[in-house]
């Protein structure tokens, strides 16, 4: 999914962004456990921020690993 052999794959950028977002969103979810917001969202008991953030972390890490420029160079 990259351009020739010269350009870093777009999936690498996406992986990096998802990893950062996952950390931020999971962090916000954990913070919300300790300090519940004044206005709670519907189904807040499901703690969506925590598991959705975790999903982003996993997806981001997988893409970072699979499309890392160093990995391509080695192959």
């Amino acid at each position: 999914m990259s351009h020739g052999n010269k350009v870093i794959s777009i999936w690498f950028f996406i992986g990096a962004l998802l990893l950062i977002y996952g950390i931020l969103i999971t962090g916000a979810g954990i913070h919300g456990l300790a300090h519940p917001p004044t206005t709670e969202v519907v189904l807040s008991n499901l703690h969506a921020a925590i598991w959705w953030g975790a999903l982003l972390i996993v997806l981001g890490a997988v893409y970072l690993y699979l499309y890392a420029p160093s990995r391509k160079n080695r192959s």
Binding site: L24, I25, G27, G29, G32, P37, E40, V41, A48, A49
Partner: peptide, 9 residues
Amino acid sequence: RYCGPGLLG
């Protein structure tokens, strides 16, 4: 309705 801090962003 469903998204709190982080998810809203």
